[in-house]
Each structure stands twice: as structure tokens, then as C-alpha cells.
Design a protein around this nucleic acid. Structure first.
Lengths: 289, 289
DNA sequence: TGCCTTTTGTAGCAATCACTACATTCTGCA
DNA sequence: TGCAGAATGTAGTGATTGCTACAAAAGGCA
């Protein structure tokens, strides 16, 4: 009964039972869905880097007799979607409650990301990357209630890439001891979006007194710390939600990680490999007791 | 010069010089445009009630070398039309000099995000949101070396929105005590991207034995935990960097936060306000000593 | 390590494909 | 009516397709 499953759904349902080659093929099929599937089996196999029998096996696994059946199913899906109005075209059409909301959310995020990129000056990014890649300079990170996680994410990577990286404890009353360690070589990386936190501002002030360089990640309106900071990244954070989105901040963080990694790559590799070894050898949680 | 004419346009332009058989064929092509043209030449000829050479002659008349060229032109048109507004972000880039690497990074991220959205089923999102919004169900979160930060971010919000949220400690040897608390009402939210961690899989196995529901955030290839999980979110994570990008995972997390917030909003407001009060009154780090 | 299962690719097959050459059928005009 | 020329179909071609059978490779487990 009911309408036949779409190829997309079938791929999802079978996702766990797919072999690596099939998974890769599935990825290619999804990438240009459903039109990408309307080529010859040879082309598809080639595009996915698998052999043609793999394509046939996947078709069978999805419940079709053979590749032609799979293909004609996809053609019908494409055809059906072309007959409906454009706004209903994407999967989360009117059928799903809350999916319209998701689409709006995603749109807002896309908008935030591209506008954040637009207003970000390459020189700023470059300057920050240069500072972070300098192994002589101790790094300290801290964030607010929500942005603490962003600081943590950044710390997580930086600390693998290079030495001398410190994540400030969650509670402000342990901060003074870190501040004592700061000097003009130190770099303080702060995250402060609305609602801006007084504690962070105070931290910035004290660090500034000790001549530390301050890198600030904030929102489009700008935390009060902006006037103290040497480098400021303004990210757009508004989305249709009760919460602000820190995705744009994360984008800049990830880009910086990539850039810093490149700049310190010579010694970083050895460092990462050493860490890797330790990571492998500290397995405590074993399968059977 | 400039952009190639669409098949539709070509048919229109040549309309007067078409022979009766070609006209009929043209009608069939237009009726299910452009998907109808993506079949074998035999099928199309049959559907139009003409012979295959007529199809080839029409293709030539429209300026293509042969039928395959016509077909691939139509496939590209179809593919282009499937790109929803979310996909075709306009180039933000011209204003960015000397940041080619950053631009490439951003492009990859945009691609990851939209493709993650594409392959994400609304039902999955809906199901996860429903589970998370149920205050009767205790939530447990954990992640791997890198994804621990994502778990932390999610935890950070969930814990504000609702009670009964636990972030599992970083070290696996403290996990058993949490597992003891799990039952069939419990929900375990795991983050596991390559390189997949054995400890997390073991955790999932033990949780499953206690009949906990498992929500998994993983990459496009899928952690081995997929087969144990009740809900799986596959996010694309590849970027031009030595590190993987978890932005797509964060996008889904933020969307879920927004959705869960909406669903529990009645009681959540009181909860957030209460937390807000406490947050305000616990300022330890005062301006001047 | 070595064995067994699973996964994947290679090689070769008939069927189908896109296409060409030619034959046939139309059409308009004398 | 007959006859050119265009329009269309038929038949046969090499190439490519989708597929099967088998072999190689990879992965898991003792």
C-alpha cells in the first residue's frame, strides 16, 4: 500500500547495511539527487570510483530488480518533483511538521555564514593566524556561558597542534592565577556574544594591563571587549530560535585551525603522531572484562 | 557566445522549421521537460510514435552532435533546476583578496552543510526532537576526542532547557557508573566521527543492553555505532584541512536546540528565568577588589 | 599468524544502444 | 497521373550497456 519508497529513503533505511563501496556510491547518488542517477551505469560507477557490479548490487539491495529499475524509479521521482511548485521541491515539503522551521533555520545560518565572511577582513584572519602559529607565544582561551564550548573546541585542536595552550577554567575565581602568568608575549582568545559577560570584560582588562594580546570573537553588535582587543572577529548569530547560533564563529575557528596547522606543519606532524600513539595506548575501556 | 541555449529554447527557435514528425517528438519532449528526455533514444522514439533516426535528426537540427549530447544537455538543465535556493548562494567572494585558501575552505563548508541537509530526513529530525523534548527521559551525552566539544555544546543548551541532562565524563573509566543508571527510558546521544573510537562503541553496546535509546551523530561514512543506534544523523565533514569540520553537526545540533526549545517552551521559560537569576547572583569576579 | 567470511573487482556475455545507409512513403506541383 | 524532393521508416553496424560468473582482495576472528 501507500506510495513506494523513494530511492533516498531506501538508501537511508539500508544505510547501516551498506558496504564501504556502496556507501561511497550512495554518497555520489545523493550529491546530485535525483538527476545524478539518470546516467549510464558505467558513468555512475566511474563517478563513484567503484565497479559496475557494485552499482547493480546496490540496486538489488534497495529492492530493485536491477539497475534499469532503480534508474526508472529515480526518473519518476525527478519527474514528479518537477511537476510540483518549486517551493515544495525539497524533501521537507509540507509533509513534515517542524521541517519548514528547519528550512528557515538553515537558510538563516547560510545567510549568517556568508555575511560573516563578507565582513571579515582577510588581514584580520591572517594576523590572528600568524599570532596563533607562533609557538613562542602562550595561548589562553576563555568564553562565556554558551561560547565556552566554542573556546573548548578551539582549544581542543590548538592544543594538539602546538604547545603552550591553556583553557581557562569555567569559574572566574580561578582566573587570577592564569592572569599572573600572562605577559606581553601572551595571547588571550576570548569569546563573548550577547549577552555580554562582565567577568570576561574584567578578564580582558586585567590581561591588557599585563600587555597580553587579545583576540576577540563576538557578534555583529560587538562585545564591550572590542575596544580592548587587538583583533576582533564579528560573526552574525541571529537565527529563528530562542538561542543564538555560533556556527559562524565555528566557521572562523575551523578556518583558523586549518591555517595554523599549515603554518606550523613542520613540527606539528611529529607532535600529532606522538599524541596519536599515546591516545592508542591509553585504552582502558576494553571489550570483555 | 555566452551561456548555451536550453533545449527548450532551441526547440522554440527552430519551431517553424520542424517537420511533422519532429514536431510531435518535440511535443513529447516538452510535456515532461526536462526529465522526459533522460531515457534511451528508443523509449523516446516509441513514446512519440516516431523512429529513432528522427530523434537523432532533431538533435542535430538543434545543434547537437548527436543524441547523447542532447541528453546530457537536458540532464544538466534538470540538475541545475534542482538546485534549490539554499544551494546557490551567490558568490560572496570577489572582495576577498589573497585568501584563496579561506575561500576554498568556506566553499567546502557550504557544500557540506547543504549536502548534509539534503541527506537528512525530516522524520529523523522530528523523531530526535520528540525524544529530546520528553522531560521524562533522562539524557546522556558523550563524544570522541574532537566531538566531545560538540557534545558539550549540545549539553550546554539542553541542560538549560530541560532537567535530567548528563554529560559523560571525558574518561571512559567513569562511564560504567552512568551506564548503571540507564534504562529503557534513557536516551544516549553519541558523537562519533572518523576515526571512530572503540570506547564509544562499547559504551553504545552496554547502553543498548540496558535498552536505552541511542541517537548518533556521525560522518558521511557512518560510525560502527550506526547499527546500534535508533536515530542516525550523517553529516559531511571533509574540508581542505588536516582536520575534519564538525560544522554540519553543529548545524543539526542548533536546529534541534531550536526545535526542542519550542516543544518544551511552556515550562522552559520558567526554568531559564530561574537559571538566569542564579547566574546573575553568582558573580564572584568583581571589578575592583 | 592463518583461516574463513565478506567485500570488491575483472572478464566476458547477450542485449541494447546510438547511429548510418538505404528504402519507402508522403507531398506538392506540373 | 506522374515525378521530383522532402520526410520518414527499416535494417543492419559497431559500440556500449547491464549483467553474470568467477577470482582477487580485504577484514574479522581464533
Amino acid at each position: 500500500m501507500a506510495k513506494p519508497l523513494s530511492v533516498k529513503d531506501r538508501l537511508h533505511d539500508q544505510a547501516v547495511s551498506l558496504t564501504p563501496a556502496e556507501r561511497q556510491l550512495s554518497g555520489v547518488l545523493m550529491r546530485d539527487y535525483p538527476v545524478g542517477g539518470l546516467q549510464s551505469i558505467t558513468k555512475i560507477a566511474e563517478a563513484a570510483g567503484v565497479s559496475t557490479p557494485t552499482v547493480i548490487r546496490l540496486a538489488r539491495k534497495l529492492g530493485f530488480d536491477g539497475f534499469p529499475e532503480l534508474q526508472s524509479a529515480m526518473r519518476e521521482e525527478a519527474s514528479a518533483q518537477f511537476k510540483t511548485p518549486i517551493h515544495k521541491r525539497e524533501g521537507w515539503g509540507s509533509a513534515q511538521p517542524g521541517s519548514a522551521a528547519f528550512k528557515a533555520f538553515a537558510e538563516a545560518v547560510f545567510d549568517n555564514l556568508s555575511r560573516t565572511i563578507d565582513r571579515l577582513r582577510p588581514e584580520t584572519l591572517d594576523a590572528i593566524a600568524r599570532v596563533l602559529a607562533d609557538r613562542q607565544r602562550p595561548l589562553f582561551l576563555s568564553g562565556g556561558r554558551i561560547t565556552r564550548s566554542n573556546a573548548d573546541y578551539f582549544y581542543n585542536h590548538l592544543q594538539i597542534i602546538r604547545p603552550g595552550v591553556t583553557l581557562l577554567g569555567a569559574s572566574p575565581n580561578v582566573w587570577p592565577q592564569y592572569i599572573l602568568d600572562m605577559d606581553r608575549a601572551s595571547v588571550l582568545i576570548l569569546f563573548d556574544i550577547r549577552r555580554y559577560e562582565r567577568d570576561l570584560e574584567r578578564l580582558a582588562e586585567l590581561a591588557k594591563e599585563r600587555e597580553a594580546e587579545i583576540v576577540l570573537f563576538t557578534d555583529q553588535w560587538g562585545s564591550p571587549i572590542s575596544k580592548l582587543a587587538d583583533h576582533v572577529v564579528n560573526a552574525l548569530i541571529e537565527v529563528p530560535s530562542n538561542w543564538d547560533s555560533t556556527l559562524a564563529i565555528n566557521l572562523v575557528i575551523e578556518a583558523l585551525i586549518a591555517e595554523v596547522q599549515t603554518r606550523v606543519s613542520d613540527t606539528a606532524r611529529a607532535r600529532i603522531e606522538a599524541l596519536e600513539d599515546m591516545f592508542q595506548s591509553t585504552r582502558i575501556f576494553r571489550k570483555s572484562p
